[in-house]
Design a protein around this nucleic acid. Structure first.
Lengths: 322, 322
DNA sequence: CGACTATATTGAAACGTTTCCAATAGGGTG
DNA sequence: CACCCTATTGGAAACGTTTCAATATAGTCG
């Protein structure tokens, strides 16, 4: 593999000159540039990015740490994150934690060893305390500390919106169901928005949380249907969960939206052709992704931000379930 | 940031010794090891992986180059690939090409500059000619050359299976629809399997390919429904496309599986709770992913393989559309 | 024409590891 | 006691780049 030295040798110049040609830094005589470029071509020289990273003591690598890329919301997010990073000349490293705290820690450790330029995290742990370096981190949907900027959608408003739409669709007793990640999660606000709005409107409501991880799914659903057979509206914490609920309901002969109106959360695109098309609170996935990257790269570039949470607006999208 | 030198200084030994302690290479007296470990702890020393990569002239990074991670089949694949890589101490870099040839080339170039240890590719180009280094590559569903090992599912058998199942479900005139990536694609075999089996069984059939990229989707479907209104079975190149077809058909008052039986391809998990649950030819995603990684790491480790295509079995999965 | 300036180029140090060779210290053996 | 062998350690080179101070070259102006 040809190195910069070989190029310099063949072109009859010093390595520093070759470096300046490659990086367009400093002044180089056109004639010299030509010679160097000629040599580069002849030797089929490719700059060694590893050596560069080493010299610079930083890599243009950003890590995305999330539960699993196979969840459609995350994969959509990942797509836009990678796209935005690429525009800025950065690369993306993908880390599936499986939501396991110990795996999150393991990855964080590895990422620091690898001196990644920054991390976008969607984690279960409060990762602030477990990162010893001052590596920039942007978190999505989790608020940990001043240091870690959080990008989220307006979960509180999303919860309120869901409640209002369920009521508007005719629900007299709406229920909130789903997993509420306890640790610093913005997602909890979906519940509080829902609850607050119900109280404000004087509507009877139910909250039926799903343990995570769940031991006995059948029992969870059976109990819900038994205890709350008067529920006629359901707001689920995400689209997949909403679909799952509908599946269970229909097995019991409950029709959607006839007997029960259902609203999900996320607004996943890849489900567009499948039925029922969910009524859902759509998060601005693309905007969240690009915002997260912009904030991260800002931090990497040395900017500091006064704001520690960036909250983007959500939207109600009508489907076939309300 | 503390370096190996600082550790050596504090422990009163040479850097080489510290290196041997860290890597458990060579002999180190227990007493010395203790001193070094003590120093490492005191300084909160983290080995600089970049420097290591540099010295070794290789990184433990494998790239996954695919059209888009937001497609559920690819995201499922990516999940298992990352999982398998992590087990072996490798990291995954994610590259979305958007199926654009120029972007594929751009990424391949970048990956070579970054001296990634290997590449798993799902590409549109014949990438063989555009990779100048001898970096190991495993391709999924594309067969280019001896050099690039191809991991695929049994697309030919999948096509035959689809035809047989459509006929078994009562179809008299089944159609193959979908995109047929021309370049060295294993996916073409889905078509040939379908066609061959139809001929073998003496069944009347239709092939209606979808251009890629498609200009006018409405026109494509309209023409299909006009020209082939006697078609009563559809085999689509993938699940998403099958769902899309069903959507279009139902808008025209065609019922599935009443009027037309439909079989998709892939067997995407994240659609399990949505309807109609597709009858589909399921690819062994997990096995494909793990096989691809194993072969790639084998190559990285210097093994050479006599076989250039690894074909895994597919399975018919009954849903609600046949 | 000499002094200055602007432009081009050189050469070497430095980044943090690993690895190899030489050096040293013990420990056993004849 | 001399010798050899092994276990352990030290020291330095090397990996390929960037950067910076120093030097060289060529105009320009008075």
């Amino acid at each position: 593999m040809a190195s910069i030295k070989d190029v310099a040798g063949l072109a009859g110049v010093a390595v520093g000159t070759v470096s300046r040609v490659i990086n367009h830094s400093g002044a180089v005589k056109p004639e010299t540039r030509r010679k160097v470029e000629e040599a580069i071509k002849r030797l089929n020289y490719i700059p060694n990015e590893i050596a560069r990273n080493f010299k610079m003591q930083k890599s243009k690598m950003v890590a995305l740490l999330l539960p699993t890329i196979s969840h459609p919301f995350f994969s959509e997010l990942a797509y836009y994150i990678e796209d935005e990073l690429d525009r800025e000349g950065y690369k993306l490293m993908l880390c599936n934690s499986g939501s396991k705290p110990e795996k999150e820690l393991y990855y964080l450790d590895m990422l620091q060893q690898n001196k990644v330029a920054g991390i976008v995290g969607i984690t279960y742990n409060d990762i602030d305390s477990s990162v010893s370096t001052d590596i920039p981190i942007v978190s999505i949907d989790r608020h940990f500390s001043k240091r870690i900027i959080c990008v989220t959608s307006d979960n509180y408003e999303g919860g309120r919106l869901a409640l209002r739409e369920l009521v508007r669709a005719g629900a007299k007793k709406p229920a909130f169901i789903g997993t509420v990640i306890p640790v610093s999660s913005e997602i909890m606000k979906r519940k509080s928005g829902f609850v607050q709005e119900a109280k404000a409107m004087g509507v009877d409501y139910v909250v039926y949380e799903k343990p995570d991880p769940i031991i006995d799914e059948d029992k969870y659903y059976n109990e819900f249907f038994m205890r709350h057979d008067d529920v006629d509206g359901v707001f689920a914490t995400n689209d997949m969960f909403a679909a799952q609920y509908i599946e269970r309901a229909s097995r019991r002969g409950i029709s959607v939206p006839g007997d029960v109106k259902v609203i999900g959360y996320d607004g996943i695109q890849s489900h567009a052709y499948f039925h029922p098309v969910l009524s859902t609170i759509r998060q601005p996935v693309e905007e969240m992704a690009r915002t997260a990257v912009k904030l991260l790269l800002g931090q990497i570039g040395g900017e500091s931000f006064h704001q520690d949470t960036y909250c983007l607006p959500v939207m109600y999208r009508q489907g076939e379930t309300t």
